[in-house]
Amino acid sequence: MALKEGKFRKAIVMVIVLIVLVPCAFLLYDSMVSSGEEKVEFYYMTSDGVMKPVEKDIRGENTEDILVTTLNTLKGGTTTEGMLPSIPAEVEFLSVGVINDNAVIDVSNGYHRMKNTEEVICRASIVWTLTSLDFIDGVVLTVEGQPLRNNNGVEFGPMDRNNVVIEPQISAETTEYAILTLYFANNEGTDLITEERVIEVNANQTREKTILEQLIAGPEELDAQRTVPLETKIRDVTTTNDGICYVNLSQDFVAKHVGNEMAEKLTIYSIVNSLCELDGIEKVQFLIEGKKVDQFKGNLEIKTPFAAISSLKGLEANQG
């Protein structure tokens, strides 16, 4: 009887030991894999308009500690020459967590006070920096506890390196970030307005072609309208040493256009102004299927190169 009681007591002790040690072992393992040093790529905008990474080592006791340290380091900027801070001072990080391998970051309402360009740079910088961590697949941003939404009111949801870029199919070895100033029509169709956009561009593709692609894709802002028919195809675009950019477009550029004098001017000058934002381009010459044509849709002559204008209203006044 005593022998059985002894065995029973030993069994009870073993169960207690397992209950105590197994959770400790998991905690120890989690601590080992979650703490230590992480190599992080911090993405900043450069003074020449491209986003590039600066690699640093970050230490932390656990995943959340590493995330907090990474975000604070990103906000603090870098001493690397030519690199600009990507997170404004008024944007504060209120809470940080990890859910299903997504970093969930709640920021202050200062996020909504950023200009469009600043917001895009800030968001891209956060997403690309945090997803350089091995344990983060995506990023969810909230503002004062509310989901971050785009200009159409749709929630962004989890963001990663595939859905914060325009051309995700291009390999990382041939891409870089760039800020483009694009011109679209205002909602009244009376003048041009600008939209600054941060995109990932192919380093092997000319910036002129990228601008044309973005114009064809149309505006992202609610107060703007597209100016170039969606069916338009880019046959070629070349800039010569004398500062003239030759834009060769498909016949759809003319055939699919709605016509009328104001619409034609909005289309032509949205392309001209957008391209003339680039250094080295002074004027734009249009070609249709490789040939110069006299008129666009019967209202505007396009046989000679166009220079950028400050506004269509000023152009109308000068012509008047």
Rank of each mutant, 00 (worst) to 15 (best):
A178M: 09
H112M: 11
R226H: 10
H112N: 14
S34F: 04
Q295G: 09
F184W: 09
V293Y: 03
Y246G: 11
S171T: 05
F8K: 09
G60R: 01
L141N: 13
E196W: 12
E301N: 11
V50I: 12
P147I: 01
E92G: 14
S86L: 06
T190G: 12
T181Q: 04
V13N: 04
A103F: 05
E208F: 02
T63Q: 08
K10C: 03
D191I: 02
L67N: 15
T69R: 12
I271Q: 00
V91E: 08
C24Y: 10
Q169R: 10
N204G: 05
W128K: 15
V40W: 05
N241W: 11
D252W: 06
V143A: 14
K256A: 13
D30K: 14
K209P: 06
L312D: 06
R161P: 01
L300C: 08
K256V: 14
G76P: 05
I281G: 02
I268T: 12
T131R: 08
N186G: 10
T80G: 01
P53W: 07
Y29L: 15
H112G: 07
A255H: 08
E316N: 05
E155M: 10
D134K: 09
L67K: 13
A317R: 14
K56M: 03
I12F: 05
I12P: 02
L28G: 15
V272H: 07
Q146E: 15
L275R: 03
F296S: 01
L287G: 06
A89N: 08
M262K: 12
M159A: 15
L94F: 14
N116L: 07
D48I: 14
L312P: 08
G36T: 14
P53A: 15
Y43M: 05
E167M: 15
G138M: 10
F156I: 00
I126T: 11
C276D: 02
I12V: 11
N204C: 04
E119P: 02
G218K: 05
I288C: 01
I268H: 06
T238L: 10
V13S: 03
S250K: 10
I234R: 12
D191L: 01
S311D: 00
K265S: 00
F286D: 05
T190K: 13
L278R: 07
L230Q: 08
S34A: 11
S270C: 02
K303F: 06
T210K: 08
L18V: 08
G157P: 02
M32E: 13
V98F: 05
P147V: 03
N102G: 04
E118T: 08
P305L: 00
A103Q: 05
S311R: 00
V154E: 10
T227C: 05
T175V: 10
E261W: 06
T174W: 13
T240E: 06
K292N: 07
G320I: 09
C245L: 01
T73A: 09
Q285C: 04
E277N: 07
Y246T: 11
D101G: 07
R207K: 15
I288A: 00
E301P: 05
E167W: 07
